[in-house]
Structures are given as structure tokens and as C-alpha cells.
Design a protein around this nucleic acid. Structure first.
Lengths: 205, 205
DNA sequence: CGTCTATTTGAATGTACTCAAAAGCGGTGG
DNA sequence: CCACCGCTTTTGAGTACATTCAAATAGACG
């Protein structure tokens, strides 16, 4: 059940994290920072609420300022396949649908209460025009995303479910604590029942 | 067995395809085109010869002008997992190792005699400095690569081997004709024996 | 406290793998 | 041009990994 709660908090928006995120790859002056920030729409998302739902056009790319989001694909039988988790300091969207302004294949939902900054597709285009350095920034973001997905493909092809689970725990220990086993199972590509037996076997050793 | 053959051909290099490829996303003037071309190293690769071998540092991103390349990962047991095929008009590299100048995880090999243009990592950096529009170009290339890999992950998670095979035939009919079933199997994540039985069942229907 | 969902456990089943052997195919050398 | 060699593909038997279904238990949250 999805329920609204009151925002915990304040009118003062802190852009430090997102500005630092951009600053990792490109150097911006004060004016450019202000322009960038002016394009962001901040949003609170309560636990289990949706940032994006299947079939609706994906308007935004989201930067997670705090909290945790999950993107998943639903097949015809309503089975969930987790495509990615996004913790603080990460960007997330349904890239294909964001770029081509098509109905989304993915659902993006808050695993826990989150604070995000949304950037609209046409505002991003404006940003590229005004501050071309952002082409470089998103070139690097896309490059890293590509590399990550390719590594995931390699591991999905070459490792057993048990090895993939172990990798996940090692690579994302924090996420592993915050999400359900069912969600981890759907990220690894196994059923929750099977993940449960894997864990049982493991602790026996 | 890997064997050298004589180059079929000519001293005149035709850059039309690669220039048109870049032209799909950014507009270049004559001077910029010439600078870009000056950075390319053209190479013939004979059938079954290597463009990149595991553990050697990946220096180049390659544009396939003609022919067909295949990138694969070898696990500790020497099993092959095909990561991608690249036909004419495609770019291919071990992105992680190219960007970070680390020893390659992937092997890139010519499925058939190919003619490629190589772009060295530091020449690409020069290109970004001289013609910043290329940031946009590679932003789009990376973005498309990311979207493709993500779609592949979704399909690997949610579809059966048979559906994946059918998708492959539909999406890449030309590649399907040029590569062995063993290579397709290793792309789909099944054994060649199993792919063979899938095909047998299919034709029975 | 009660309800809903996640997790565990187990039995039966199915999908895909391993191993082995035979048949097919393409390239090479005689 | 034909025969052989090596690799790919097919086929089949036995096995392993992972799923489905069902039911019981545990946990989270209003």
C-alpha cells in the first residue's frame, strides 16, 4: 500500500551534493552553477511511491540527493526484474524513453523516502546549448553506465547465481542491507525461493 | 588456425563511411573533418586475427569500415562469452580498459576479413580539446550503447533461451548468417548443444 | 493486535548443462 | 579434384541447477 506522509523538512534546498557530483568531471563557474540549479526540480518521494510508472512518458532524469530508488521491468505476467538501484549521488532514469520521449518500459519506485532532483529532457537540451561542458559531463556518465552494464552482462553470462549473489554483497553492501531479498533476487535473475536456499546452504558451510 | 593473407587492395583510403557516421550526430566543417581523419589509423585485419587480446592494454577504439568483429570474454575455464558483434558502421572497444588504460578483459577478433579505423585514447582526448563537438558525438554513442546493454539485460532476465534466439534472428538477421551457431550461443548465454536442440524443436513445429 | 508481505522449507518438475559419439562441412594439401 | 583433417553441429543419455507450487513461519507496520 502506498501512502503519503508529511515531508519531514525544510524550505532550504541544499545543492551541495549534486554540484559536487558534476564537479567531479567538469569545472563550472558560479554563473553556470546557478543556471544548472535553476533547471532542477526538487522532489520528495515517500517510501513505495513512484518516480516513474510504466507506459507514462519519462520526462526526467533524476539525481538522488538522499534515499534509495529502484528501477524495474514488469513482464506480461507481472514478474519484476530489477534493472538498477540508485543510492545518494547517483543518476537514474529510463534512458531510452527519456531520450526518445517514448512511454516508459521501466518503473522507478522509492525503496525508502528519498529526496531527488529532476531534470527535464528539454531543460537538458537547453543546458547543453548554454553550457556545452555538460556534454562532456553526460558523456562520462553514459560511458560509466555503459561500462557497468557491460560488466553486469559478462557476470550474468559467466557466473553462477551463488557467485552473482556474493558479488552483489561485496559490491553493494549498503544496498544489500536496505532492500528486500526479493528485490535482490530480481536483480540477480533468480526467484526469491532459490535465493533463500542459496543463503541457507552458504551459512551451513 | 590463424593465417595471414594478402591484402586485397588499394592505397586509397575511403573515409566516407566514418565521416557520414559522425555526421549523423554532429555537423563538422572541412577543417574539422581533416583533423579527425588525421588521427585515424587504418588497419586490415584478416579472418580470425586479433584486434585486441586479453591482458594487453586496450589502446584503440575501432570503427568498422567493412567486415565483422566480435568481442568476447574468456573465463578461467576458457569458455567464451560473446559480448558484442560489430558490423560495418559500428564502433567497438573494451570500453573500460580503453578509458582507464588497463589490461583488457575482452578479446576482439575478426569474424571475417575487416577494414577498420583505430582511434587512440590520447588522440581522442586531443580531439575533444580541438573539436569539443566530439564530446556530444561520443555522448550520443555512449548513450546508445548504454541503452542497448540495458535492453539486453532486461531480455536476458525476462526471456527464455528460445525467445532470446528468436529476437536475435529478428534483430540481427545479417549477423546471424555470418557467424557460427556456437558464437550465437555464446552471445545468448547457452551452450551450442542446447541451441542446436532449440533449433531442432523449432523446425518441428 | 491483526493483516499483509517476505522468507523459509520441501516436493515435484523443467530447463539447460555435461559428456560422449556420430555426422556434416570447409579448407588444405597432395 | 578428391581425400583428409579439424572444427561445428547434431543427437542422446544422464545430471544439475533453478523453477513452480504449496504451506508454514517470521517480520513489518498501521
Amino acid at each position: 500500500m502506498i501512502r503519503k506522509q508529511k515531508p519531514k523538512s525544510p524550505a532550504i534546498i541544499n545543492y551541495d551534493l549534486i554540484v559536487a557530483n558534476v564537479g567531479k568531471h567538469i569545472a563550472l563557474d558560479e554563473k553556470e552553477i546557478l543556471f544548472f540549479i535553476s533547471l532542477l526540480k526538487e522532489k520528495h518521494v515517500y517510501k513505495n511511491n513512484f518516480v516513474l510508472q510504466e507506459a507514462q512518458v519519462c520526462q526526467y532524469i533524476s539525481f538522488v540527493n538522499s534515499g534509495l530508488l529502484r528501477a524495474y521491468y514488469l513482464d506480461k505476467e507481472d514478474k519484476e526484474y530489477t534493472i538498477m538501484f540508485a543510492v545518494a549521488d547517483w543518476w537514474i532514469t529510463d534512458m531510452y524513453c527519456y531520450i526518445h520521449q517514448k512511454p516508459a518500459m521501466l518503473t522507478i519506485q522509492a525503496v525508502e523516502e528519498s529526496h531527488i532532483f529532476n531534470l527535464k529532457n528539454d531543460d537538458l537540451e537547453k543546458l547543453y546549448m548554454e553550457v556545452p561542458k555538460f556534454e562532456k559531463f553526460f558523456r562520462i556518465i553514459m560511458q560509466n553506465a555503459y561500462i557497468r552494464e557491460q560488466l553486469r552482462i559478462i557476470q550474468n553470462l559467466s557466473l553462477s547465481a551463488e557467485e552473482r549473489y556474493h558479488n552483489f554483497l561485496t559490491k553493494y553492501p549498503q544496498i544489500a542491507k536496505q532492500v528486500t531479498q526479493k528485490q535482490i533476487a530480481s536483480y540477480l535473475g533468480v526467484t526469491p525461493e532459490f535465493l533463500s536456499t542459496l543463503r541457507a546452504n552458504k551459512s551451513k558451510t
